[in-house]
């Protein structure tokens, strides 16, 4: 059974000028332990997709099932209960904004567990710190006192602390420099290998291609291609995907850009 099953998802906002379609009949599924990259540029609807899965944006039509539960019909209280189980977690792009600046690392990490009312919080925190390779001494620092890489690892640790089966990552490495990007990607790879399903959402195919089993390309609110990574990259089918693949800068000098440009 799928861990996440999205069927014909539609999201539109009402505007005075009419409906603004953000997502159109998006279907996407994720099996346990699978890693999928959703690639989309500005305005493709990729953030809305993540927020809809998490119940922060209301779907206009379609069905989203998380671990067999149809979440579209959930009442706020039921949503809270589902979230408290910690099955799905989310890592934001910018840890400086997604961690409360006034809470210590310890308090930020403990929060999901405290919301659950879990026991043995300190042990779990120490375990997760070891896993993301952060020093215990950082526990009573504030986010502002950490480096960018440390902050993002705290954000990842926070998401992992409830032992989720699915983690949504919204541009998890875009704000980091190379050294930290490699560290966080390594961490995510370990996570993938340990059987956690990951849904990467990014504008930058180049930064997540190497870790995704499958790539779904989101273009103007529609998924135009959803196939294994190697196929998407080596033999893109949709014109937009072709343009995208050609645009990603790579170290291969052989595919140095062609002067005739890229079809619109």
């Amino acid at each position: 059974m799928s861990l996440l099953e999205i069927t014909d998802l539609d999201v539109h906002y009402r505007r005075r000028t009419g409906r603004l379609h953000v997502l159109r009949s998006v279907s996407l599924s994720l099996s346990p332990g699978e890693t999928v990259g959703v690639i989309g540029e500005t305005g493709s609807g990729k953030s809305t997709l993540a927020r809809t899965i998490l119940g922060l944006v209301k779907a206009s039509a379609g069905r989203i099932a998380i671990d067999g539960t149809d979440v579209a019909s959930l009442k706020p209280r039921q949503w809270r209960e589902l979230r408290r189980r910690g099955v799905v977690q989310y890592v934001f792009q910018d840890p400086l904004r997604s961690l409360d600046p006034d809470l210590t690392v310890l308090d930020s990490l403990a929060e999901p567990l405290r919301i659950q009312g879990a026991a043995g919080i300190r042990d779990k925190i120490l375990k997760i710190l070891a896993r993301v390779r952060l020093d215990e001494a950082l526990l009573d620092r504030l986010p502002g006192e950490l480096s960018g890489g440390q902050r993002q690892r705290v954000a990842v640790a926070r998401a992992l602390i409830t032992e989720p089966r699915l983690v949504l990552l919204d541009e998890p490495v875009s704000a980091l420099d190379s050294a930290n990007r490699v560290q966080v990607l390594e961490l995510l790879k370990e996570l993938r290998d340990a059987g956690t399903a990951l849904l990467f959402i990014s504008h930058d195919l180049g930064s997540v291609a190497g870790i995704a089993d499958r790539i779904a390309v989101l273009y103007e609110g529609e998924i135009v291609e959803d196939r294994p990574s190697a196929d998407v990259i080596n033999a893109p089918v949709h014109p937009y995907t072709r343009k995208l693949i050609r645009s990603v800068p790579t170290l291969r000098r052989a595919d140095r850009r062609t002067p005739e440009g890229i079809p619109a």
């Binding site: 979230r83 977690q89 997604s98 961690l99 409360d100 006034d102 809470l103 919301i115 659950q116």
Partner: peptide, 26 residues
């Protein structure tokens, strides 16, 4: 509207929790 409040909501926090833990001190 901050992301850390959203993060708390995603972990299943109630409004009361958010006010007590995040809003009040700010």
């Amino acid at each position: 509207r901050s992301q850390y409040v959203e993060a708390a909501l995603i972990s299943g926090a109630s409004v009361g929790w958010v006010v007590r833990k995040h809003v009040w001190v700010k």
